[in-house]
Amino acid sequence: MAEKVVNQEMIKPENLVYQKTKVLNDNVMHYCPGCGHGTAHRIIAEVIEEMDIQSEIIGIAPVGCSVLMYNYFNVDMQEAAHGRAPAVGTAVKRLLPEKFVFTYQGDGDLAAIGTAETIHACNRGENITMFFINNGIYGMTGGQMAPTTLEGMKSSTSPYGRDIPMMGNPLKMTELVAQLPGTCYVTRQAVHDPSHVRKTKKAVRKALEYQKKNMGTSFIEIVSNCNSGWKMAPVEANNWMVENMFPFFPLGDLKVPEEK
């Protein structure tokens, strides 16, 4: 490991306060600099480590930028067809009900091609945890318009901005699944700054705890950036996200289980 070390004398195991979780391996992630996927992966992995469920969890990867996420997680994983992770996860959980199952999908995967699978898994109340990374664009295929692309937002297939009469409205999937009786916990979070990362991590923990208690589908949207697709530097993209994405996709809990 090449490093520029300052305060060498402090680097002792007893002083260690933060290091990357062992539930992620050492492969360099293929994501663009500053991409929220990496942070989202890491906090899911940290919660898996903290709950000590690494040997009991199966992850379902999507098609999209995070298609290769199984290259980074030290857990058993399956790679689903585009949009079908909730169907795949449904079967895994029903056949291995004592194990934990999570799906991880982007906006194109979860809210366009996989809308039916998303809604029906949530409506049946499949006892799985679904992560929904919403960056308002198709990142992997080169920045095309997504179901969540904002009005007026430019993409390679809405080069003059999303025109609602012509291209339809952006879809608030999280609000939609919050209406369904099968979901127990529905929340929208972000991972662009330390306080939001901490909040999101708490949400991930809650979601997996609810799964442990067989409470139904837990659904976490993470509003994220796409520096390449948005054609912005990472920090600039995060600022743009705060100013433009959050008003339309407001952060916070949409549904929380009643405390017993």
Binding site: N7, M10, Y18, V28, M29, R42
Partner: peptide, 12 residues
């Protein structure tokens, strides 16, 4: 905790 690539280790 905000590092997307998890490249930072912290001591205190």
């Amino acid at each position: 905790i905000v590092c997307p690539d998890g490249v930072i280790t912290v001591y205190r």
